[in-house]
Write a protein that binds this DNA or RNA. Structure first.
Lengths: 230, 230
DNA sequence: TGATCGCATATTGTTGACAATCTACAGTTC
DNA sequence: GAACTGTAGATTGTCAACAATATGCGATCA
């Protein structure tokens, strides 16, 4: 029997995953400083749960790389180095190039669904740029790229990209307050969307590479910023 | 004070990670059937540990996708569909293409170190092909590709690839006993190595694409095989 | 005065017991 | 005879207490 409309199994996902998702969101929003130790007991009571489920959630985030675990010391929020930034964006480039290739090989219908979604996100982005809401801009930025990759339907690619998106938001957070080249932001995403709609394979690939390359430049040009170390 | 040569901190890594590594190896070696439930209590006592650390390890493997967790039901070994096989190899292609690109952009010394390692693995592969040891061949096959990606030094790319390697071994395991085209196996890897040494970018990219494409064909051409569903 | 040793404290790592939930089977009713 | 309901068993989910380990401070000694 299929569940009636609007009705779904209560808490179908494992608890640890729910806690992990919550924690990830807290971390990328900057609720914890990079390098800060995460106290198990304190967090457990804050989230009104026990240490057991919380530890399981922390394990997941360690595996993702957002937290690092030191035996008998505890877990700490990842400190991003410029090397990390380069790594993250190199992998993002690889994933997005693969996503672009897959999308252009797939049904036109599937692509246009994705394009519709991307359009909406760009609209929202322009709105938030006007309002100078950096947190919202960062969220929409990553939402755009996540939607792009989701368009492939490749669950493994999507899962990998979710981690990368979280790490990217941590990078952007470390930049603090502002995106440089704020006017170019909407423009660059619009170009990626246009090239996808035009099914211009090599143009799209180049645009993605440029987008990533510029992001690395922006993020590493200010090594003195809080949270970014050597 | 740096630790003296050959001496290192005892059990420096978290317990859950050690257990997870052990379990992953057991699973890819086929100690558990696809779809089989993993009993926590039983496994915990088998590994002479408690349910707590074991559950943390299981969480990690769930995140990797090797196990799937159903709330209040337990965790089960992943059942691979032909769709999964396509996904896995699409992501592997993306990662290896990125690795190839990175390697060809890096120092010649770094590349030759990698080539040396790859050569040794191919030698071992030829030996095991002669001996028809399929388990060893599968291990060396993935060891080759893992070494290739490791050559980039990108820790995130490497971590992602470790999961893909485990899933690939599960695919190969599902094929049971034999690789088809066993003679072509050593040859294909040798070609990848040669193109890397020759720094032939487009040739290497094509070779990787062909290698992955053929693997998917081999793995999905026999949908009636044990463990492969739908 | 400087370094080293030992202790106190806080935090993590582990364990076993208890509670909640699901599956399967037997009994009952139409 | 088929479908539904209730119960029994097993398994996972959660929790709180206990053990082990690392860190930081203060005392001791060269």
């Amino acid at each position: 029997m299929a569940a009636p409309e609007g009705m779904f199994v209560l808490e179908g996902r494992p608890t640890a995953q729910l806690i992990a998702d919550q924690l990830r969101e807290l971390i990328v929003q900057g609720a914890f400083r990079p390098g800060q130790q995460v106290n198990e007991s304190a967090l457990a009571s804050q989230l009104s749960t026990s240490r057991g489920p919380l530890r399981e959630a922390l394990q997941r985030l360690c595996q993702e790389g957002i937290l690092v675990s030191k035996r008998n010391r505890g877990v700490f929020v990842l400190e991003l180095s410029t090397e990390d930034v380069k790594e993250i964006y190199a992998v993002r480039e690889a994933v997005e190039l693969a996503a672009a290739s897959t999308l252009l090989d797939s049904e036109p219908d599937q692509v246009s669904d994705t394009c519709r979604e991307l359009k909406g996100i760009i609209r929202g982005m322009a709105k938030q740029v006007a309002a100078s809401d950096w947190q919202a801009i960062a969220r929409l930025d990553m939402q755009f790229h996540t939607a792009f990759v989701s368009g492939t339907g490749n669950t493994r690619l999507i899962r990998i990209y979710e981690t990368l998106a979280a790490e990217s938001r941590m990078c952007i957070l470390s930049l603090e307050v502002a995106y440089p080249r704020i006017d170019a932001l909407v423009q660059e995403h619009q170009m990626i969307l246009d090239l996808l709609e035009a099914r211009d394979r090599s143009g799209l690939q180049d645009a993605i590479k440029r987008h990533m390359h510029k992001a690395v430049e922006d993020l590493t040009s200010k090594p003195e910023v809080t949270g970014i170390t050597a």
